[in-house]
Design a binder for these strands. Structure first.
Lengths: 105, 105
DNA sequence: GGTGTTTATTCCATTGTAGATATATGTCCT
DNA sequence: AGGACATATATCTACAATGGAATAAACACC
């Protein structure tokens, strides 16, 4: 199973996830929104499916796709130490400013 | 400038960022850690540089690379609505459990 | 059973990417 | 200036990914 990072590298696939975040949608809807051909859209959906980022539910001749967020945890967790570092820097800046003499009077 | 998502799709590049999160490093150090050839490492660094994810400071004949986290904000922000959705689901689950009769006695 | 509708699969062409080797550039030291 | 060292760039190759067109498969409806 491909890593979530590789899957998210493709803009159309991020767009698909954004659309599915609002609500589940059939392939046809996604085709319209993306401006891709139907086969192209289906192919991206296959990649997303194999990465566990979407789930498919048949509805007669249609296939309704819905979001599965679990694999996004990988990205969230990778980002974690960077967020921490970012916060630490903000703290340091704040302490720095607090320790500085007032220059504006 | 390439999107941060595309840059992060490559595992070696994520590894480089993780190493630079600890401290700035010269190319040689990164080559050792990655187990890649020097040119290969330099090429990844170029991609990272062009995406604004690292910064280069010459030090004699060495080039010391350090992390720049700003472009990671794009990823963080894209993830935001998913985090919100995730939190909402946890809330719903919690409310659901609270409303359930105790089964364990 | 045939037809229209919806989606998946296959095939092809194009392009992009990662890696390796060889080479160039620039810096230090003597 | 010359040699050693560190890094970047160029070139080549192999492979993967994207997108389109054509085709196949599944289902609904008459």
């Amino acid at each position: 199973m491909a890593t979530a990072f590789a899957v998210l590298a493709e803009p159309h696939r991020r767009r698909i996830l954004d659309l599915l975040l609002e609500r589940p949608r059939a392939v046809g809807e996604l085709v319209e929104e993306l401006g891709l051909t139907q086969p192209g859209t289906s192919k991206h959906l296959k990649v997303l499916r194999e990465a566990g980022l979407v789930r498919m539910r048949p509805d007669a001749q249609r296939r309704v796709y819905e979001l599965r967020m679990e694999p996004l945890a990988e990205v969230h967790e990778w980002l974690e130490p960077y967020r921490r570092m970012w916060a630490r820097r903000l703290d340091a800046l704040e302490r720095h400013l607090d320790a500085m003499p007032d220059l504006d009077d």
